[in-house]
Simulated assay, not measured.
Amino acid sequence: MTGTIALFIVFFILLIVISSSFVTVKQGTIAVVTVFGKYRRILSPGLNFKLPLIENIYSRISIQNRSVELEFQAVTFDQANVYFKAMLLYSVLNQSEESIKNVAFKFVDERNLMQALIRTVEGSIRAFVATKRQAEVLVLRRDIVEHVKEQLDQILENWGYHLQDLQLNDITFDDIIMKSMSQVVASNNLKAAAENEGQALLITKTKAAEAEGNAIKISAEAERQASQLRGQGVALFRQEVAKGMSVAAKEMQDAHMDTSVILFTMWTESIKHFAENSQGNVIFLDGSTDAMQQTMKEVMSLNLLHADKSKSK
């Protein structure tokens, strides 16, 4: 009976030793093995063998990407408070033994690592913002991220980590500054709208002036052509009248008649035309004998002038 119990105890101990000799490491994780507190080796994902009771699993390190949110304040060169909300994405540098050793032994625990990482990022951003003015900060997101990466790459590499990305999700200022910035934007928008409206009005006025000028030019050209045609018509009318009078006068001379009858007829026809087309206007004519003779002489002179021109042609 005693031998059976002893055999059972030996079997149980062997079972514990054998079971503790195999270690399962999850995917995305690296196990760090120590022997009596001293680093020995690392175990890759999968089923691994270790010396029972001698080798010990010191820690399991995730090689997956990790993120942390940050909220902190900085002060610009012109003493304006800037409030940042950021997201930090980082991971283990690589799966090399040296990097894993740095991750495992550089910090006491994860909390100390996070504290150092966050404070380093905040300090780098604060140092950069302190050299810029408040009006410049909003347009320097990319520059801030590049500055932080440049400053932290060497530091994080010594810790066994790599900064994957830094996203500045929100950049705000004190309420009074945000209000003043909104007023500046609103005033600039109003100014731009006024300038656009002025440009549109100027274009409209210019186009209207051009159209009016073109209309005046067209009207003037049409009036010029009409005047020219009227002048040509009057000249032709006078020419035909002169020809008719010349023919009539020659026929009356051949018939030994007084040619003044023609002038008298023209005089009466003119008075008749005035009366029919005067539209109510009053026309005063000197009907005395002297005035009639004077008019006759002027008409005869005009007739002789046209006759001379006809002969010269």
Rank of each mutant, 00 (worst) to 15 (best):
G3C: 09
A6W: 14
V17R: 02
F22N: 02
Q27G: 13
I30K: 02
I30E: 00
G37K: 09
G37E: 05
K38L: 03
R41F: 02
L43M: 05
P52N: 06
P52I: 08
E55Q: 05
I61L: 07
A74Y: 04
A80N: 14
N81H: 03
Y83D: 05
F84T: 02
M87T: 13
V92T: 01
L93C: 15
E97Q: 12
E98S: 10
S99A: 11
V103W: 01
F107E: 02
F107D: 08
F107S: 06
V108F: 15
E110P: 01
K132E: 04
A135S: 13
A135E: 10
L138I: 13
D143I: 09
I144Q: 03
V145Y: 04
E146I: 12
H147E: 08
E150W: 15
L152M: 14
I155H: 04
E157Y: 05
W159S: 01
W159A: 01
Y161M: 00
I171H: 06
I176W: 13
I177A: 06
S182I: 05
S187Q: 15
N196A: 09
E197F: 10
L202T: 01
T204A: 14
T204G: 13
K205Q: 15
T206S: 13
K207F: 10
A211F: 13
E212H: 05
N214C: 08
A222Y: 04
R224I: 12
A226N: 11
A226P: 04
S227D: 05
R230C: 03
G233E: 12
Q239I: 00
G244N: 02
M245T: 08
A249F: 00
A249T: 04
Q253K: 02
H256W: 11
D258Y: 03
I262V: 10
L263V: 05
L263G: 11
T265M: 07
M266C: 12
D286A: 12
T295N: 06
V299M: 15
V299H: 06
N303M: 14
L304M: 10
L305K: 08
K309G: 10
